[in-house]
């Protein structure tokens, strides 16, 4: 088996052995559940659109909270030294930790599958956008995990890692809502940078290669940035 799978498993074990996992998942479910269902019945529509609209904003602070410890903790405790003296490459470490962040995000999303299932009993649910929404959520989770991982690699302090990660994720989420601040010439470019813009396309059930490329590039940039930071530490 490839080395990164061992790191992935260890991270998951570490994550689920401590209360952080359960606290983060619980908070996520309470916040999404409350905001979604508090207005759900007013709309009188069997759709998850509002849930998916909320998701980027909530992810922007929940995912950095998951990923903040991935590197920062190792750096502050010194276990990074042990990791580096084992026969693993930077690639193994980064991929393993990134996938750990992604799996945790997926674990967090899993209980929310109860929403579409229960809603499908209430009315005619269009499954297209739901499937698109979950696919988009995984992509978004991946992009934010990569950013969070990068934030975690630049500091020994988990709180700093969280704040930096959340700040970047928030910016990407909100930037396409601030378009009126930007000159017309770069409007399209700024809009293209917005994570929320791409996510809302996918969550409508439209899977466009531009949106896929956006998320994959953000993941790549995040992970490559992390790689450069680790290289710098030598």
């Amino acid at each position: 088996m490839r080395q990164f799978t061992h790191i992935l498993k260890k991270e998951l074990k570490d994550f689920f052995a401590t209360p952080i996992a359960y606290i983060v998942i619980t908070i996520f479910l309470i916040v999404t559940g409350w905001f979604f269902f508090s207005t759900f019945f007013l709309y009188n529509q069997a759709s998850l659109r509002n849930f998916f609209n909320l998701l980027p904003l909530i992810f922007a602070f929940v995912i950095p909270a998951i990923t903040m410890r991935l590197f920062a903790e190792e750096l502050s405790k010194g276990s990074y030294e042990l990791l580096m003296t084992m026969p693993v490459t930077f690639g193994d470490i980064i991929i393993g930790k990134f996938l750990a962040g992604l799996v945790m995000t997926a674990a967090m999303l899993l209980p929310t599958l109860a929403y579409p299932i229960s809603i499908s009993f209430l009315g005619q649910l269009d499954w297209g956008p739901v499937i698109g929404g979950y696919l988009g959520a995984i992509l978004l989770g991946g992009a934010f995990s990569a950013i969070g991982l990068f934030a975690s690699s630049i500091t020994h302090n988990q709180i700093v890692a969280f704040i930096v990660g959340a700040a970047i994720c928030f910016t990407l989420t909100l930037i396409d809502k601030m378009l009126f601040f930007f000159p017309e010439a770069i409007l399209n470019m700024v809009e293209y940078l917005g994570a929320d813009f791409h996510f809302s396309n996918i969550s409508k059930g439209i899977i466009d290669s531009r949106d896929l490329i956006y998320f994959i590039s953000v993941i790549f940039i995040g992970l490559y940035g992390t790689y450069l930071v680790l290289l710098q530490k030598e």
Partner: peptide, 14 residues
């Protein structure tokens, strides 16, 4: 190589 670092920093939660 097997290496024992100075302060034996391990993952405390495992």
């Amino acid at each position: 190589i097997g290496y024992l670092p100075e302060s034996s920093p391990f993952y405390k939660d495992l």
